[in-house]
Design a protein around this nucleic acid. Structure first.
Lengths: 255, 255
DNA sequence: CGCCTGCTTGACCTCGCTCAAGGCCCGTGG
DNA sequence: CCACGGGCCTTGAGCGAGGTCAAGCAGGCG
């Protein structure tokens, strides 16, 4: 099944983060990659690894996390289609967090050697990849604020809004509804809350009419209200103005 | 007073993150900058700005922060000598967090135009700058874990260890003692705790003999123990092996 | 059918917050 | 030289958000 087109995904990710001329676009599309299916909960790279490739998510949801001595795990980022969670290993020899998938996933492995050749030959492509890692950093900054300052319901609402917005940017949401396959345990690890409290907070959010979450689908019926509730502004995602509107065509392919 | 040598600072920052040949080093040292003194609590760039320059801290402590509607502020990163807190504005047009200084400071302003020229002419310099932003991101990831999973005393201890280690890398600490001019309010904003609880946690840490903090100086008398207590490992700072040992000479210039 | 994973609920507890007041140090001005 | 004021640190008392422990429930899959 050629449903997962790595070249197209990479090209669209790059074009969302900068401008490519035809020559650069060709070079990008020529980048070789190995497509791999990954079972749920499997790890892609582990703390301490010195990988020789980077990974693009083509399908499924991944995360960056660290596990403390007491066994508790903190998720510091979620990764969706077209994200490259370990792009940083191109310049940081040894990995400092675990990267794994929370759901069954399909990923593309890209050799660092190929990536470096591409960057050397096309500096503007390198700049765009750099920019992509800067957006990732902006998201981490938000997460620090989220976990440090917001109360439970706001935290979860903010996370939902971030995911909805990012999924919309890659055509997996219409801004109101999306597939959302994470468990309450996943949510608890991403928000720094206990699973019990996540459960109760979800119920409260449902009671307020701010969210619907069932059978792996998330709906935000009152976008305006929940954004205000969570103090969410998409600015930190640094999406180009066009991408917010350009999701008309096949945007509703939710899975 | 020529105490703050921008060129030397930039060169040393870059050389800690990669290798420069003599030509590259010359180009780096030729980068123009404007030195500015900044009063405590003054902001360098604000959320929403579209700056045309980036800033290197030469003296003092800065921070990246966001302020929520309720007035509470979360600090998501601290910046010390040789850090370039808004390097990201080179590729991210609009700033998503405030950057300010917590103490009186001296900074160098570098025009993006000059920085771009340098990167275009010397791709390896660009790669090193990229790497620097990736280390910043690694620190954000740690902070998510810190704020999300550790209890109050561990959080503060972890922050102290990070600062001690980073200051050692730039010659402002011997790994045991450093100038530490932050107030308990600053600490509370960096850890997501209340000032009252920071105060009591500090007392407890003092009681355990893990820290001494007085008159703006921080001492960690039992490095091994406090690292274990806070589950700190410096790996995420991605310091080169050499820099840990190479701080012999003038390392004890604490201010 | 039965199990396993994920969701839900109740009861209780505690870490950290809020509010409020007092103390210390230092810089400023009379 | 001393009085005053303003940060910053400290302490007490009471409270509440969120954690822990434990049990029950639902639904999908072998």
């Amino acid at each position: 099944m050629p449903r997962h087109d790595f070249s197209a995904s990479l090209a669209s990710k790059l074009e969302r983060n900068g401008e490519l001329d035809p020559v650069e676009l060709d070079a990008v599309k020529g980048l070789p990659a190995r497509i791999v299916e990954v079972a749920a909960d499997q790890s892609l790279v582990r703390e301490g690894d010195r990988p020789t490739h980077s990974t693009m998510i083509l399908h499924g949801v991944g995360c960056t996390s660290r596990t403390l001595a007491n066994g508790r795990r903190q998720i510091s980022a979620l990764h969706v289609k077209e994200d490259i969670p370990d792009l940083l290993s191109l310049h940081l020899a040894v990995i400092d967090s675990d990267v794994s998938v929370l759901t069954p996933a399909v990923v593309a492995l890209i050799d660092h050697a190929d990536l470096r050749r591409l960057c050397d030959a096309h500096p503007r492509v390198a700049d765009i990849l750099w920019r992509i890692t800067l957006v990732d950093a902006a998201i981490y900054r938000q997460w620090v604020t989220n976990v440090g300052q917001r109360h439970a319901e706001q935290r979860i609402a903010h996370l939902f809004l971030e995911m909805m917005t990012r999924l919309e940017a890659v055509g997996l949401s219409d801004g109101r509804r999306c597939a959302f396959p994470l468990t309450q345990t996943d949510l608890s690890e991403a928000t720094g809350l206990s699973t019990v409290h996540v459960n109760r907070s979800l119920q409260s959010l449902r009671g307020r009419g701010l969210i619907e979450l069932e059978r792996g689908f998330l709906t935000l019926p009152m976008r305006r209200e929940i954004e205000q509730f969570a103090e969410f502004s998409s600015a930190y995602l640094h999406l180009p103005a066009r991408s917010r509107a350009a999701t008309g065509g096949d945007a509703l392919v939710l899975v």
